[in-house]
């Protein structure tokens, strides 16, 4: 079931090399960012507000072009290779849950009958199979987020980009979704780049934490969290977890100082 290879054997998925992004008005959102993303990685981008995390995701998604440097995929990117989850659920309010999850297939031209099994399976994975005919306004914030995650996963993409997806949720919902997210990643075997403000979240989820600083946005440090998967509540209370959290906090503090 777990299609994710051990750390040492993972092959490269994409490479970010010395990327700069300068916005009009000479705002250096990113400077010399480099990152190697390997298949099966769970990478967190952790850093204070304004350090260019969202900018980095948009560049990787191909929504904007780097001012300098390159972003290269090891194999050419196909339409369904990338899924995205934003901070807001970003659902189409006029479409039912199932229709929302169907969107990536629909845009590819796949008929609903052919996509139906995948849609139902993914909805089951996020625990919303009973709500497939509900409209988004009838769902809670956490449920909407699950639909958004299901939509990103339904094509079994190679890479999923998530920009603070759980920032607006309460802690209980957040922990639950963190657990489920790891579970789903293991099943699908995808790579995840996850933006967060939360040290705890990044340690619990990630294999690697990229700590960033602002003005200009840049990478300060890369931490490895080598705790084995599957991770569960036991990991949350372990000494190992606490130690990683401490290390990440310190790195984040450095990042804040570097910016000040």
């Amino acid at each position: 079931m777990a299609r994710i290879a051990p750390f040492a054997e993972r092959s490269e998925l994409l490479r970010v090399s010395a990327v700069d992004k300068v916005f009009p008005g000479n705002v250096a959102a990113l400077r010399a960012m480099s990152l190697e993303v390997r298949e099966g990685d769970f990478i967190s981008l952790l850093g204070p507000s304004g350090c260019g995390k969202s900018t980095a995701l948009r560049l990787i998604a191909g929504l904007s072009d780097p001012t300098a440097g390159r972003i290269e995929w090891s194999t050419p990117r196909a339409k369904g290779d990338l899924g995205v989850v934003f901070q807001e659920p970003t659902l189409m309010p006029w479409a039912t849950v199932a229709q929302n999850v169907y969107l990536p297939f629909r845009l590819e031209g796949t008929p609903y009958s052919a996509a139906k099994d995948d849609i139902l399976q993914t909805l089951k994975l996020v625990g919303l199979e009973k709500f497939q005919n509900a409209y988004p306004r009838a769902l809670s914030g956490g449920m909407k987020m699950r639909v958004s995650i299901a939509r990103a996963m339904v094509t079994q993409p190679k890479l999923i980009l998530m920009d603070e997806p759980f920032a607006a949720l309460d802690e209980i919902t957040r922990f639950k979704l963190n657990n489920d997210l790891l579970d789903m990643q293991a099943r699908i075997g995808c790579t995840v780049i996850f933006v967060t403000h939360s040290v705890f979240e990044s340690v619990f989820l990630s294999d690697r934490i990229v700590v960033m600083a602002a003005r200009p946005g840049r990478v300060i440090e890369e931490l490895h969290v080598d705790a084995p998967h599957p991770r569960d509540e036991a990991f949350r209370t372990s000494a190992d977890y606490a130690a990683h959290c401490r290390a990440a906090s310190q790195a984040l503090e450095q990042a804040m100082e570097a910016a000040a």
Partner: peptide
Amino acid sequence: NLRDLFRIYG
């Protein structure tokens, strides 16, 4: 964001 999503899916 929906507009971006449509772009990502080509």
